[in-house]
Amino acid sequence: MASKGPAAGEGTGKDSGSGDGSAPRSGSGDIQRTIELLWDTGRRPSRGPRPALTLDRIVEAAVRIADAEGLDAVSMRRLSTELGTGTMSLYRYIPGKAELLDLMLDRVQTPADEPEAFDGGWREAVRLGAHEQLALYGRHPWLLLVNQARPVLGPGTIGSLERMFGRIRPMGLRDPELLSVIMLVDGYVTGVARSHVHAVEAEQRTGLTDADFWQAQEPQLTKAMMSGRYPQMASLSEDTFGPDFDHFTFGLERILDGLELLVSARSSGTTGAGPAGPVGSVGSAG
């Protein structure tokens, strides 16, 4: 998603990717301007008619396009068509695609209203957070394509972290450990979601369903299993690779079981953990 400059209708001098085929990146635009836009701290005109176009409308339209057609479909020119305005008009509100991406990321990660305090216990809190994140990737699969090693934190992302820290505070762990819990679950959910998205994309790209794909390999795989060279694989039950087993829930519950051992050890006065290592990104996935 390299920028080509306003004259080309594609962005400013900085882009949301590297221009070399690598993943689009958060935090790759004008950071100070992005912060102003995220937190609404920029200067506003005090006079004149109310503009027909707003930053909210631009961001909402960009998210809508990305959800329907993928992140590559989002361009300043496409947005101008979607919003019924001139391309150059967009630059009165946002410098370019890099800053727009950061606003999109923060918008989709804004948590829904929680009318009352969560009291389901820390284990249910982690479970709920994992399912909420999986649903987020289902609604916005393009999130998985963004390198968020350097997220620009806005009210949406901060609000999401605020909620999660509040929900898991009863674990009784140190703050860096609570952050590590969030990162652990984030990494697990992201991996599962990415595998699902890749499977969907493969079917769309090739026209082959999963069933067709594996059926094409069945004759050779049957011969391999009968050769005696792979006794462990040949002895697996017929339902091993079937669709009925819930791998996501199984893995998540094992993570929760491990965390429960730690929480129990802490509550009983034993250490239950080694020294913490370096802390990575607190943004969503990528």
Rank of each mutant, 00 (worst) to 15 (best):
M1L: 13
A2I: 14
K4F: 13
K4Q: 11
P6M: 11
G9V: 03
E10I: 15
G11Y: 12
G13R: 13
G13V: 12
K14D: 14
D15A: 15
G17D: 15
S18Y: 12
A23P: 04
R25D: 09
R25V: 10
R25C: 13
G27N: 11
S28N: 14
S28G: 12
E36I: 02
L37I: 03
R43I: 00
P45N: 04
A52H: 10
L55H: 08
L55P: 04
L55W: 04
D56P: 01
V59N: 04
I65Q: 07
D67E: 15
G70H: 01
G70I: 01
L71Y: 06
S75L: 05
M76G: 05
M76E: 04
R78W: 03
L79H: 00
S80W: 04
L83F: 05
T85W: 11
L90Y: 03
R92K: 09
I94N: 03
I94H: 04
P95G: 06
G96T: 00
K97P: 06
K97D: 06
A98E: 03
A98L: 03
L105C: 10
D106L: 07
D106Y: 01
V108Q: 04
Q109D: 05
Q109E: 10
T110R: 10
P111K: 05
A112Y: 00
E114P: 09
F118L: 09
R123T: 09
L128G: 08
Q133D: 10
Q133P: 08
L134Q: 14
Y137P: 02
Y137D: 01
P141K: 07
L143Q: 07
L143G: 00
L145W: 03
V146C: 06
A149I: 10
P151T: 02
P151R: 05
L153Q: 06
I158K: 00
G166T: 07
R174E: 14
D175Q: 15
V185R: 02
D186R: 13
D186L: 12
G187D: 09
Y188W: 02
V189I: 12
T190A: 08
G191M: 03
H196W: 07
A199F: 07
E203P: 02
E203M: 11
R205V: 12
G207Y: 03
L208T: 11
T209S: 11
D212T: 14
W214V: 12
A216H: 12
A216W: 10
Q220K: 13
L221C: 01
T222A: 10
K223S: 13
M225F: 13
M226H: 09
S227G: 00
S227W: 06
P231W: 03
S235L: 09
L236K: 02
E238Q: 13
T240I: 04
F245I: 12
F245N: 11
F250C: 08
G251L: 07
L252F: 12
E253P: 07
L256A: 10
L256M: 09
D257C: 12
D257H: 15
D257F: 14
L262C: 11
R266L: 05
R266I: 06
T271F: 02
T271W: 00
A276P: 01
S284I: 10
G286W: 06
